[in-house]
Structure formats: structure tokens, C-alpha cells
């Protein structure tokens, strides 16, 4: 983890900003532990994915350009989300392909952008977190992590560094949890049906905690589990890792 100091722009994501700042602080802590200098550009808001997925292309492009400008000059951009990182990495170059001023910048940002676990493992080579828990967990891969980013082994490589963690894999880990952004609110019955399938899978692993890397999926599954009075703890992987380490600094007030 040594070498030249990396200036990493933290892309907070709008859900973490609005709902769960703890995850943002845990992310910053992990990046700092990996020897990075964490910068939080104040000109960032949302990556534009909700607009892009809804077909509101002009709004999406405007937010993409804003994000590109906000993170200009940083070595890397890291998001505690496969979904937002996937939007920047996979969709910005398509979105702005015909934009003479931004097409190259979009490709450049895409090259520098990583989902948190992928960044920690692939770029920082994080391999010794020296932490411990006594928890039986299962891990939920978000679709964008799996299929937009090819991130599957990296979160597991991090979890394996926490002594006392027993990871029980889902039997249908490839299957979507039913969140899908606006889909969850527009088609709630289908969305919660899919959540139920996922929660049944989680339950059958015998895990007491569900860990994942996308707050969208996690809040959807948690809110469904709570509605059904299921006894399930849900944590973002950044929180889980930090909670297992001494002196947590998760920014709670």
C-alpha cells in the first residue's frame, strides 16, 4: 500500500449523502487506511443515473458533465456503490459520445473510476485489514457490480480479511433483488416479490447479517425485511469492515 500518494475523489452517491453518511465516512476511512488522500469535491451531487434510466437524457448529460468537472484532476474516483460507479464507468462514455467537448473527458473519468472494493483490492492491494468480528454473514452482489463492472471477487477478498467472519453464499446470487431505482416505486408489487425471493435466499443461508456494496439494494431489502418484521441486520460493506476494526470513526453525531 505504499508508493506515490493517491489523491482519491470520493463520489459520495446521493443515497449515502441523503440517508446514510456513516457509509461515506467508513469509505473515507478505508481509503485513508489504504494510503490515499481523500478529497470530497463539493461540486458533486448525483451521477445522473435516475435521469438516464428514465430516458431524461438531457438532464442526465448535464449531470454527467457536472460530475466530470467536479472530479477533474484527481487520480481516482471511488464510489461506495457499483451502481453509481457503473454509471460513470460504463454509461458516461456512451452518454457523451457525441459531445465534442466532453467525450474524451468522459472516457478519461471512466478509466479513473472504481467501485470501492474493486479499488481497495485491485489498485491499493489491500490485503491485511487486521480486524475481527464474530458474525455469520451473507453477501449480496448488486447487478451493476456483477454485470457492469465485473466485481465479484473483490468484496469477498476484503471480507476474508476479517477474522471470525463466516461468509455463507446465497444460492441465487446472480439474481436481482428487485430494487432497480425508480422501478421499486413504480412497480412495488413486483419489486417486493423479488425482494421476498432474495430475503428467503438470505434466510436459508442462516446468516444473521446481509452485507452488500450498493445502498439502493440494501435499503430496499432492509425496508422490506422490516415491513415483514424479519430479524435481519443489513450493512454496507464499508460499514461492516470499519465496525470490525478498532476505534470506529463512522461520523455518527
Amino acid at each position: 500500500m505504499s508508493g506515490k500518494e493517491r489523491h482519491v475523489g470520493l463520489f459520495v452517491t446521493c443515497l449515502v449523502d441523503l440517508l446514510r453518511p456513516e457509509i461515506g465516512f467508513a469509505t473515507a476511512r478505508l481509503l485513508e487506511m489504504a494510503g490515499c488522500t481523500v478529497v470530497v469535491p463539493s461540486a458533486q451531487t448525483c451521477c445522473g443515473q435516475p435521469a438516464w434510466n428514465a430516458g431524461a437524457d438531457d438532464h442526465a448529460r448535464a449531470l454527467a458533465r457536472q460530475t466530470i468537472d467536479a472530479f477533474a484532476g484527481l487520480d481516482y474516483v471511488v464510489a461506495p456503490s457499483g451502481s453509481c460507479a457503473g454509471t460513470i464507468k460504463r454509461h458516461y462514455p456512451t452518454m457523451l459520445a457525441d459531445d465534442a467537448a466532453y467525450a474524451a473527458k468522459a472516457r478519461d473519468l471512466a478509466d479513473r473510476t472504481y467501485e470501492l472494493s474493486a479499488f481497495l483490492v485491485r489498485i491499493c492491494g489491500m490485503n491485511d485489514l487486521a480486524a475481527r468480528t464474530n458474525t455469520k454473514i451473507t453477501y449480496h452482489d448488486s447487478c451493476s457490480s456483477l454485470r457492469d463492472l465485473g466485481v465479484r471477487n473483490e468484496p469477498r477478498a476484503l471480507l476474508a480479511q476479517i477474522a471470525g467472519t463466516e461468509l455463507c453464499e446465497l444460492s441465487d446470487g446472480e439474481v436481482c433483488c428487485g430494487f432497480g431505482g425508480m422501478f421499486s416505486a413504480k412497480y412495488p408489487e413486483i419489486s417486493t416479490h423479488m425482494a421476498d425471493n432474495k430475503l428467503a435466499d438470505v434466510e436459508s443461508t442462516g446468516a444473521e447479517m446481509l452485507v452488500g456494496n450498493d445502498l439502493g439494494c440494501l435499503m430496499h431489502l432492509e425496508a422490506r425485511a422490516k415491513h415483514q418484521k424479519r430479524n435481519l441486520r443489513v450493512r454496507h460493506i464499508a460499514e461492516f469492515l470499519c465496525e470490525a476494526m478498532p476505534e470506529p470513526d463512522t461520523g455518527k453525531v
Partner: peptide
């Protein structure tokens, strides 16, 4: 079919 999401009450950027 879902409860409100768990929320801190403050934004990350403020904190």
C-alpha cells in the same frame, strides 16, 4: 410493502 429507509437525519456533506 416497505418501511421508510433508515436515515441518519444529516447529510454526509454537512457532517
Amino acid at each position: 410493502g416497505r418501511t421508510l429507509p433508515r436515515a441518519n437525519g444529516h447529510t454526509f456533506h454537512d457532517l
